[in-house]
Computed example of a mutant assay.
Amino acid sequence: MSPVANVCACGEYFHVDDTGELCLNKGTMGLRRMVQFSTPGTAKFRKADYPWLARVRVKVQAGGGGSAGADAAAKQLIARPGGSGGGYAESLIEVGALADVESVVIGAGGAGGIGNNPGAPGGASSFGGTVTAIGGNPGTDGMTSGTSNTTSNGISAPSSGAGQITSGGGPGEGALRMAMRGMSGRGGDSWLGFGGYGRTTSGPGGTSRGRGGGAGGAFSSDGKSYDGGAGGNGIVIIELFG
């Protein structure tokens, strides 16, 4: 008769189930999966879809602010500031604190302004009612067409939302004009993205990179009209721990 082997296992990490199989204890398996909600709008997270779930780390990025459009008169100039980046929030949540179904909101980037109109604010993003991030502020349309030396203030960052870690996003940079030369403002960065570029020649607002960055400002000279840029869309990332 062959000898029976004895196996010792740490009870903190393992248990023997009813069938005699050695299994990992729930809550000790670490990161098992990551779920992303990236399309602007609303979605649902159902914890029953993951029966092994022990806790989640939720990362919530709001949308960035759009920049204003610019339409200068002939032989005149307009430069616009950039929109600010969207806010960010993060929390680690035990499975027992989750509702059976949690609502997820993904904020869209703010639209760019048309003509001499301001941009739109970025949309807020959230997970349930506990982790929220505020959308970026839009670029303004304060500079009128002309050639006099002037500036437009930068755009303040949004305030912090709610969560264990929160950030308000980066401010949009200001714009300036010196006769027929100038510079539009760069968009504010976000936790998960970068703002659109500023420019010194005519063109639309610069496009952001990543998620939640503010749009760069539009620049118009000598009767050429350009729309503002759109801010970057937000995202909600859920890391699932078993």
Rank of each mutant, 00 (worst) to 15 (best):
W52E: 10
L53Q: 11
L53N: 09
L53G: 08
A54W: 14
A54D: 14
A54H: 14
R55Y: 15
R55K: 15
R57H: 10
V58K: 04
V58G: 01
K59D: 12
V60R: 14
V60S: 15
A62W: 11
G64W: 10
G64V: 12
G64H: 11
G66F: 15
G66I: 15
S67R: 13
S67E: 11
G69V: 11
G69A: 13
A70N: 06
A70Q: 04
D71F: 06
A72M: 08
A73S: 07
A74L: 01
K75G: 01
K75P: 01
L77W: 07
I78M: 00
I78S: 01
P81L: 06
G82Y: 04
G82N: 06
G83H: 05
S84I: 09
G87P: 13
G87M: 11
E90N: 10
E90S: 11
E90P: 08
S91Q: 12
S91L: 11
S91K: 10
S91F: 12
L92W: 13
L92P: 07
I93R: 11
I93M: 11
V95I: 08
G96R: 06
G96Q: 06
G96C: 03
L98E: 05
A99I: 02
D100T: 09
V101W: 09
V101D: 10
E102G: 00
V104H: 10
V105T: 15
V105P: 13
I106N: 04
I106V: 12
I106W: 05
A108Q: 10
A108P: 04
G109H: 11
G109K: 12
G110W: 15
G110H: 15
A111T: 12
A111L: 08
G112W: 12
G112F: 13
N116G: 12
N117M: 00
N117W: 00
P118F: 03
P118W: 04
P118N: 05
P118S: 09
G119W: 15
P121Q: 11
P121R: 10
P121V: 12
G123H: 13
A124R: 11
S125E: 13
S126V: 09
F127D: 12
F127Y: 10
G128M: 14
G129L: 14
G129P: 14
G129V: 14
G129N: 14
V131K: 08
T132G: 03
G135N: 08
G136V: 11
G136D: 12
N137Q: 08
G139R: 09
T140A: 04
T140V: 05
D141M: 09
G142N: 07
T144R: 03
G146N: 05
G146S: 02
T147A: 00
T147M: 02
S148N: 06
S148G: 05
N149F: 01
T150W: 01
T150G: 01
T151Y: 07
S152C: 05
S152A: 09
G154I: 02
S156P: 00
A157W: 02
A157S: 00
P158V: 02
P158K: 00
S159T: 02
S159M: 00
S159V: 03
S160Y: 02
S160C: 03
G161K: 02
A162V: 02
G163Q: 02
G163W: 01
Q164K: 03
Q164C: 00
